[in-house]
């Protein structure tokens, strides 16, 4: 792990992995979407709108997973001062916010025909909304503090504080079990979902995971390159000497 604190080594690894990650993502999405939208059977109660689930559920999983990744990166950053995990947290946050927004929007689209309303103040929906706010706050804190190392550490503290919220989301289903159906895939006694729906769901879930990995690597690479451009500019400015704007000659004051 610490070998890759060197950006150059990380770039080498990332450049080798990234094309594969993107190819796997494209294949998984192609297979998964065809299975989910065409081949899988419609639900006996929900009809065709069950197909929204194949995007909604992976997005919701990713929403929680990405926050966990950010929290792990934050802990690593605070304990070992590892510079690359700061870049990872920063690059992952907008992706996580995007997955969360996708889960919320697809949930609303599914809720309208099923529950007859776009939004209900069910505990689980509400906590995903709160998760979205946590992402937004994390991104805002990064942007508000100019000094990058300071911003990284402040954001790390915030992410760890907010991480306390993630288990509350997961278990709120059992605490305030209201409208949202309880978890049906990850259970002690095995999934209750039929195999013809489970397979496309899992393909989509893995596809979302590799999509996240591909986007994360791409974003981190461009972040590192951006930093290099910035320091190269600073170096050039230092070589050229202090910047002296050409002022018009001041007119002599006549008494």
């Amino acid at each position: 792990m610490f070998g890759y604190a060197n950006p150059q080594r990380f770039l080498g690894l990332s450049r080798a992995v990234r094309p594969w990650a993107w190819s796997v993502t494209v294949v998984l999405f192609a297979v998964g979407l065809v299975q989910a939208l065409v081949l899988s059977p419609p639900d006996y109660q929900q009809g065709e709108s069950v197909r929204i689930m194949y995007v909604h559920v992976p997005a919701a999983w990713m929403a929680m997973f990405v926050y966990t990744v950010i929290a792990g990166a934050s802990l690593t950053s605070l304990v070992w001062r590892h510079p690359l995990v700061d870049a990872a947290g920063r690059a992952a946050a907008p992706l996580g916010a995007g997955f969360t927004a996708l889960a919320l929007v697809t949930g609303a689209l599914w809720g309208q025909p099923m529950w007859g309303t776009w939004w209900v103040w069910d505990a689980r929906l509400t906590s995903v909304l709160v998760l979205f706010f946590l992402y937004v706050g994390y991104i805002a804190l990064w942007q508000a503090i100019e000094d990058q190392t300071r911003a990284a550490r402040a954001a790390a503290v915030l992410a760890l504080v907010g991480f306390v919220n993630v288990p509350i989301i997961k278990f709120s289903v059992d605490w305030w079990n209201t409208l949202h159906q309880p978890a049906s895939v990850i259970r002690m006694d095995g999934p209750t979902i039929h195999i013809s729906q489970l397979v496309p769901l899992l393909v989509m879930a893995i596809g979302f995971m590799t999509l996240f990995l591909s986007l994360l690597l791409t974003r981190m690479e461009s972040e590192i390159l951006e930093r290099r451009v910035r320091s190269a500019r600073l170096m050039r400015a230092r070589e050229e000497g202090p910047f002296e704007p050409a002022l018009p000659e001041a007119e002599e004051v006549r008494g």
Partner: peptide, 27 residues
């Protein structure tokens, strides 16, 4: 107090403080 400590060096940090802390106030 966590939000106030995080935004201590941010000018006009009051709004940012609200953004950071309000989600934590929900429970």
């Amino acid at each position: 107090s966590v939000g106030a400590a995080l935004t201590v060096c941010v000018r006009r940090g009051g709004l940012l403080l609200a953004l950071l802390v309000l989600p934590l106030y929900v429970p």
